[in-house]
């Protein structure tokens, strides 16, 4: 019986993250447009964009190898798997034993690796430029992420996400200064990883400073749809991961009734919406940073993470 419940919840989550991802991206775009006093495209526009892209024919460069065609599927699957592992509305997932922070980071890194390879494969200058920038950002963001993982695992005693969520919701984690620092670091890392504004501008592929868009410039049709979907999924993933680590209230735990799970679902959707609005406000307030100032921002994230680990060691016993 339990196996069936867990399986059903897992299937529901896997489907839900994919179904909600374009809506979330649409919501962020809509709020941003409204904040700039533009009318904004409807939130559901992103779904029709995906439908359009899926209908269109794929155009591939002459000198593209099999790798170029493989990459979109690889990236999409890695990110989708990662997104379905994070406990969003319930910790009773069938694949919960695999939901480990380190595994999650590995999945996302392999997606990034694939994307950079695909960008390099066709040999256009934008692809190489985007790939090298992406790798630079990744090499700065990853140490900060590791520090966050250290803090969380020192606090909760594990990197296993469902256990972390359970521990955090029971121990008033938000009162711990280390957790506060880790949360700030997490915001910085998430902005970098999801290619949002101070790091990269998701709204344009016409800038010389673009990073993610430069890498996917040559993709079209269903390949582009998969890559864009992976981008949207990543946004859902990072928002859910943030909620799971730092605001884990409402997630249904062991021995939850169906009502609890439904409530958890509602709370998760509300959390996502609030996160999307906050992200849009943040993006409107900030300007895109110069590429060489990113080291300061992400280095700041790393230092916050380091500080939180130090304080966790010093005051961990209190």
């Amino acid at each position: 019986m339990e196996l069936i419940t867990e399986g059903l919840i897992q299937i529901a989550q896997t489907a839900l993250v994919l179904a909600l991802a374009p809506g979330l991206t649409g919501l962020v775009r809509w709020v941003k447009a409204r904040l700039l006093r533009r009318r904004g495209t409807p939130i559901l526009q992103v779904y029709s964009d995906f439908a359009r892209l899926l209908r269109k024919k794929v155009v591939v460069a002459h000198n593209a190898s099999w790798l170029f065609r493989l990459v979109p599927y690889l990236v999409f699957n890695a990110v989708w798997t990662a997104a379905s592992l994070v406990p969003t509305f319930s910790t009773q997932l069938l694949f919960a034993p695999a939901a480990d922070l380190i595994a999650l980071i590995a999945l996302l890194s392999s997606a990034r690796f694939g994307l950079a390879l695909g960008a390099l494969d066709i040999g256009t200058s934008f692809g190489g430029l985007g790939a090298s920038r992406e790798m630079m950002i990744a090499s700065l963001a990853e140490p900060a992420m590791l520090m966050i993982v250290f803090t969380v695992s020192l606090f909760a005693g594990t990197t296993h996400l469902p256990a972390v969520a359970e521990y955090m919701s029971q121990h008033q984690a938000f009162l711990q200064v280390s957790v506060l620092l880790a949360a700030i670091a997490m915001v910085i890392v998430s902005l970098a990883e999801t290619a949002r504004i101070p790091v990269d501008n998701p709204a344009t592929h016409l800038e010389l400073t673009m990073v993610h868009e430069a890498m996917v410039l040559e993709y079209s049709g269903r390949h582009l749809a998969l890559i864009e979907a992976a981008g949207s999924l990543k946004l859902v993933l990072y928002l859910s991961l943030f909620c799971c680590l730092f605001v884990p209230w409402g997630i249904a735990h062991q021995a939850a009734t169906p009502l609890d799970i439904l409530a958890g679902l509602g709370i998760w959707v509300i959390k996502l919406a609030v996160g999307a609005v906050l992200l849009a406000v943040l993006e409107t307030c900030l300007a895109k940073m110069r590429l060489f100032r990113l080291a300061d921002l992400l280095g700041g994230g790393f230092l916050f993470g380091l500080l939180s680990v130090i304080l966790m060691f010093v005051f961990g016993s209190l």
Binding site: Q172, L175, Q176, V177, S178, L180, L181, I184, D296, G300, L303, F304, L307, L311, F315, L318
Partner: peptide
């Protein structure tokens, strides 16, 4: 314990804002 944690959080926030000042 909660009193302690709140004092700790406020002091820590001051340190955090201090880093913001430096940044």
């Amino acid at each position: 314990k909660v009193q302690l944690q709140i004092a700790y959080l406020l002091g820590g926030s001051m340190v955090v804002v201090n880093f913001a000042l430096l940044y």
